[in-house]
Design a protein around this nucleic acid. Structure first.
Lengths: 198, 198
DNA sequence: AAGTTTCCGGACAGTTTGTTCAGTAACGGT
DNA sequence: ACCGTTACTGAACAAACTGTCCGGAAACTT
């Protein structure tokens, strides 16, 4: 049968080897042989599982994003508004479990495609949310919802990037969320030092 | 003399060819031959000017960042506080003049190294500024200055990315700055929909 | 033990890279 | 206008990597 334990084993070995090496040297600096060598697998075997270096990479990152999606969906759907602290907390916890994979995505490895998929997906949802919110609240849209979403997601991603690259004992996820909430609620503090708009 | 007009001419041709092709196909998809062909220059000639595809790329982006630095330095030094609207306005104007180059950097092209240099530089300055500000104002640092800086810069960069990729007649730079100021001053609006901190 | 599936090492042509070199063209000074 | 210097060119080269194919060895299933 195609139900062979060996297959999953070597695939996992290749995936793990890729992740390790990307962390060590970066994606572009890798040859297929580097990967198979680290995975202790013949070079020819690689091509009977994946067409490309790129395909392997794409699968690894796609799986991570899918897993994140699974964890996030219930949380997002629960709350009428998509942006409580909970989704971010979920993301941070997931990032704590799968730190290397998050690093890879958030470093923009692999032509930055996974990172772009990630941010684009977030921005799409956020933009929709902001559009709806400004309608419901009858707040005149002084800020383009598209731009607002980009800015919002940009902040989240930047914080994630920062957090996941800390090598010292990292700040607890709950603390990060507290700070983000504080940040959002106290824009005036944050903005201290701005000129008044001309 | 080494002051040959031909040299500058072919170098410029190579640089321009690189920029064009990176916009069209992305950096990793390029061979040296692609570049020299587009620049109408012999392949061997390339290596008498640059060691690598990467070196050419690094020079191009480094020059851009240096130029940005030159434009920013006087503005930043003028104002005691580094984060009035003026630096951002300068950046937006520069990005309007050198749109393709900004796109390349902000897309994270070339392993994302230039983008990281850019954001890291900004974050370093911002973090210092925020540290000083919280001391002067005797505001207890409820938010790690490092995190605050990352978040701040992440927002700026995200907005830049968004703005520079718009293909329709882009929103004027002044309008973007106005929105960013509004955004910073009205964190509470932005945060509508958050849970209250647990 | 027999039959199937996977793995392996080696060999293959095709690219790309970075270097070298001899010939040719363009430049700059007098 | 001439001549020495400098830069460009095309070709050839070894080296590395890619993706494919094959026959034999090894592992799994029943």
């Amino acid at each position: 049968m195609a139900e062979d334990r060996r297959v999953r084993k070597t695939r996992k070995a290749l995936r793990d080897a890729l992740v390790e090496l990307v962390i060590e040297r970066g994606f572009t600096a890798l040859s297929v042989e580097d990967i198979t060598q680290r995975a202790d697998v013949g070079r020819a075997t690689f091509y009977s599982h994946f067409r490309d270096k790129d395909e392997l990479f794409a699968r690894v990152t796609a799986d991570l994003l899918a897993e994140l999606d699974d964890r996030l969906r219930p949380v997002v759907q629960d709350s009428a508004v998509g942006f409580t602290g909970k989704p971010i907390l979920q993301m941070l916890r997931h990032a704590r479990d799968e730190r290397d994979l998050y690093r890879i995505v958030l470093r923009g490895e692999g032509d930055g495609k996974p990172l772009r998929m990630f941010t684009d997906a977030c921005a799409r949802v956020a933009a929709q949310e902001f559009r709806g919110r400004s309608e419901r609240n009858a707040v005149e849209p002084r800020i383009d919802p598209e731009l607002l979403a980009r800015a919002w997601v940009g902040e989240q991603v930047a914080v994630l990037q920062w957090w996941v690259e800390q090598d010292a004992p990292p700040m607890p996820a709950e603390e990060v969320v507290r700070m983000l909430l504080d940040l959002a609620l106290r824009g005036r503090y944050w903005a201290t030092g701005f000129d008044t708009p001309a």
